[in-house]
Structures are given as C-alpha cells and as structure tokens.
C-alpha cells in the first residue's frame, strides 16, 4: 500500500542525525460495541452478552517509520484514518496489539486540557496544568508570568476558566503545555483554534522546540500550518502508511485523492 517508493525508513537521512522515535510494524486494535459505545463505559449491563456484541476495530495496520532529531513531522489523513491513534500509541497512552514504539525519552502530547478545572480561575489552572505536565512547584512559579503572557490572558487571569472564550482557553492550554522543554512533542490539532496572531506565535514556538534538538509531530488538517512548520510529512489512510517524505510531494499526492 505504500505509494511512495522513497518512503518508509530508507527516507533521506542526509547527515548523521540520530533516530529518536522508531515505530516498528505497529498494530492497534480496539474492541468496540456494535452500537459504537466503548466497551468500558460504566453503564453497560449484561456481563454475559458482552462477547457477542463487541466488534474489533483495526485502527493501525502495521505502521513503520523512524523519526530523527530536529525532525518536524506533519501527520495528515482524512478523519478516522488513525492519526490520533498513532500519536497516542507513540506516547504510550494506547498500548499496541503487536509491534512496538521505541523512543529516547517518553514523548509527550500537548493535551493538558483534561487536567484543568473549568470552574477555577486561570491562575489556579496555570499552576495545576504546569504540575500536571510534570513541572515542580518552584518551576511553575518561575515560569508563571511567561505562561500568562504567552497565552495573552493577563487581564482575565482571576476569572474562572469557564468564562473564557474557546480561543482563550486553547491559547492557555497551548501555553501551559509547551512551557516544559520537550524532547519529543506531539501537537494534535491545537493550532486550528486561536486567531492569526496566536497561530503565528505558536508555530514559532514549535519551530523553537524543533531547533532545540527536539522532534515535533504535528497533526493537522491545515496544510498551510504543515507547510509552514514541517520538514517531512506522513500520510496515514485507513490505518496504513500511504506516504512519507517531502511536505510538498506528500501534500499534493494527498490532495489529489480528495
């Protein structure tokens, strides 16, 4: 199914850059109820009927590639193609059913949102989010101003987060999540929100992370964002790796199929 001949693994490694993430023949399967309900949800009944009603969804079918240091990799594909599953598997949040992911350090996902408490003030949430990202209390205090200013919410910092606009919330989450130095960072659709000014700033921050010997995966439907920030693009479709290579080539091949 690999369209590109210059794809997987053999892909240009122009210099002696070291591999930081190796994805080796990764398969992920989910068990889902036929109704679409997850099999773990609390309110299901009938222990005995369980086996009959679940269906297995093969979300990733043998994906392999290697990411090198300073890579900034765009991940594209239509809805439900397995992009997010691949990212969660790379961070180790979703276990593989076969194959494996190897990394120099544990990749982190830009997903601090779930740790925040909407009814509390922005100030409380900066602290909580920073701690959830693994910073110590002192580090959070030191970088507090930086986070608030980057998010641009200083006038509203005392208000509960539920009063923030969706753009403000997204900016705050991005600011908290990128405050820590990440060796390997995964950004899943975070740049779609926020105004133009903030998008430029966040793309700048992603480039900074990459330049500091970090590796960034950027999942996005905005081809413009990907062209602006990535030096390599992976195209996933129906759980398989379609193409892996230069952004312009892969994006035009992807757009030709739409």
């Amino acid at each position: 199914m690999v369209v590109s001949t210059e794809g997987t693994g053999k892909r240009a490694r122009p210099d002696s850059r070291l591999p930081v993430v190796i994805v080796d023949d990764l398969h992920v399967e989910y068990k889902v109820y036929a109704t679409g309900k997850r099999a773990t949800e609390a309110d299901r009944g009938g222990l005995l009927r369980r086996a009959k009603r679940t269906r297995t969804v093969h979300a990733l079918k043998g994906v392999s590639f290697t990411a090198y240091e300073n890579d900034s990799i765009g991940v594209i594909g239509s809805n439900g193609s397995g992009k997010s599953t691949l990212m969660r598997a790379i961070t180790g949040l979703t276990p593989s059913s076969s194959g494996a992911v190897y990394a120099v350090s544990r990749p982190s996902m830009l997903g601090v949102g779930a740790a925040l408490i909407k009814t509390l003030s922005g100030q409380r949430n900066v602290i909580l989010g920073g701690l959830a990202m693994g910073l110590s209390k002192r580090e959070v205090e030191e970088r507090y101003d930086e986070i608030v200013d980057f998010a641009g919410i200083r006038p509203f910092i005392d208000l509960p987060m539920r009063t923030y606009s969706s753009g403000m919330t997204a900016r705050l989450k991005f600011a908290i999540a990128t405050v820590r130095k990440h060796e390997i960072l995964i950004v899943d659709e975070a740049l779609a929100v926020g105004d133009r000014k903030f998008r430029k700033r966040s793309e700048q921050r992603i480039r900074e992370i990459r330049d500091n010997a970090g590796t960034v995966f950027l999942v996005s439907h905005s081809m413009q964002s990907i062209r602006d920030t990535c030096n390599r693009v992976i195209w996933i479709e129906k759980g398989e790796l379609m193409m892996d290579g230069d952004p312009d080539e892969v994006i035009s091949a992807y757009e030709a199929t739409r």
Binding site: T8, G9, L18, P19, V20, V21, I22, V23, D24, S64, F65, T66, A89, I90, T91, G92, L93, P95, S96, A100, V101, Y102, A103, V104, R106, P107
Partner: peptide
Amino acid sequence: VDDPQAYGLHRVG
C-alpha cells in the same frame, strides 16, 4: 527500520 537498541532507544509505554 533502524535497530532501536543501537541508538539507546527504549520501548514506550
């Protein structure tokens, strides 16, 4: 793919 052990990579998760 490259050999992960050779570059000091660890299995994630």
